[in-house]
Amino acid sequence: MTEPLLDVQGVRKEFDGVPVLRDVSFSAQSGTVTVVIGPSGSGKTTLLRTLNALDVADGGTIRIDDVSADFGSTVDKRVLKSFRAQSGMVFQSHNLFPHKTVLQNIVEGPVVVQKRPADEAAKDARVLLDQVGLADKADSYPFQLSGGQQQRVGIARALALQPELMLFDEPTSALDPELVGEVLVVMKNLAAEGWTMVVVTHEIKFAQQVADQVLFIDNGVVLESGTPAEVLAEPKQERTQQFLKRILDPL
């Protein structure tokens, strides 16, 4: 087996002295989908943010492709910048610039951060909009879009940076139920195209259909990991069983 694109070893993170991640370790091969599940407050979002260096880990090592850092020592700001360049983040809320059009939102990163020519970035952005089913919305403003459409623009914006790794932080949690499907379809298509993805979600059906591996996190610890069949259909840990029962059969 080839070396994994993403390798996480012993990652720790505290906030105000309270441990949020406790020696989290996992790896992901290029072109695979890792789904992270767990109760609220278990550290799922913090894990994603450490992978993107939005939150700098307090310990452990992270490698994305050829960029690696040992967070047990001081990490150079240039390394953190490289980490951010390797991954694209899609947030729970869309975080689009309200005063910019859809096209302007997407080209902002490539032009400002990556210094790419504006005409080239705009051309690529239109291809991405077509990919997420919004080719006709390039000149629209965020307030003119539904929540699902805004989230699809958020996905296109992350893709525009051409990252090695796509990170999704509960991308459907803020959407009305009838809009969830349109975002999940785009994510399934990305998985089929071979994007490497780490997805925090409560959408268990999506995990069953798309994930190559599932991590169950509770209290900052990866309690169980494996294929969807192993973790979702036949979980070994009692805590995993309790969580899935509440998700799948809440009444």
Rank of each mutant, 00 (worst) to 15 (best):
P163E: 07
D169N: 12
L179K: 05
P177H: 13
T172N: 08
V183W: 11
P177Q: 10
V183S: 07
L175N: 02
E170F: 00
Q151M: 02
P177K: 12
V183D: 10
L175F: 06
V153Q: 01
Q162F: 08
A160E: 04
M166Q: 04
V180D: 07
S173G: 13
V183A: 09
L161F: 08
Q151K: 10
L167V: 13
A156C: 09
E182Y: 10
I155N: 00
S173E: 15
R157F: 07
T172L: 02
Q151A: 05
A174H: 07
E178D: 12
V180K: 11
V180M: 08
A160I: 00
D176F: 05
R157H: 07
A156P: 08
L161M: 15
V183N: 10
L159V: 10
L175M: 06
I155M: 00
L175W: 02
Q151H: 09
Q151N: 08
Q150P: 02
T172M: 07
A158P: 12
I155C: 00
E170M: 02
Q150Y: 03
P163I: 04
D176N: 04
G154L: 04
L175Y: 03
A156D: 11
Q150W: 01
Q150D: 03
A174L: 10
D169W: 02
L179E: 09
S173V: 11
L175C: 01
Q149E: 15
E178Y: 01
G181P: 11
D176M: 04
S173C: 14
L179C: 05
A158R: 14
A160L: 02
Q150C: 11
A156K: 08
P171T: 15
A160H: 08
E164L: 12
E182I: 11
A158Y: 12
D169S: 12
A158Q: 14
A158F: 13
D176R: 03
L175D: 01
T172F: 02
D169R: 10
V153I: 11
L167C: 07
A158C: 13
M166R: 02
E182V: 14
E178H: 03
I155S: 00
L161W: 01
D176Q: 03
V153Y: 01
R152Y: 14
A160G: 02
L161P: 00
V180N: 06
R152A: 13
L179T: 04
E178S: 07
L159A: 08
A160C: 03
V153L: 01
Q149G: 13
A174C: 06
L159P: 05
G181F: 05
F168G: 06
A174F: 04
Q149D: 11
